[in-house]
Amino acid sequence: MEKIRLILDDVMEGNIVVLEKGLSPEEQSRLIEMTMMEISPDGFSGIEMETYSAREGQSSPGFFGKLLGKKGPGARMTVIGPANQMKTIKKDKDLISAWVSSR
């Protein structure tokens, strides 16, 4: 579960992690468990994540949908960040797109 550890360490430092392949159910389950063990008062309060998929025929694919659409149907992407910061990031779309394309 080295992968989960790395993701969580990154998020705990305040970063947003974008995973192009998403996480398996087993990994998601471990991520929740590990996240719980890292929460502390006035410190880290957990994560938020969202999975975006590029579905065919979607009327308004949205920002991530459009981004994924280029990768073809069925593509998925998972975004994981510190709790309560995802909303601001969703608003700041330019920031995310810059971040994604720089990887």
Partner: peptide, 8 residues
């Protein structure tokens, strides 16, 4: 209840 975040 399962959640990914808890703040006191």
């Amino acid at each position: 209840g399962v959640t990914t975040k808890i703040d006191y």
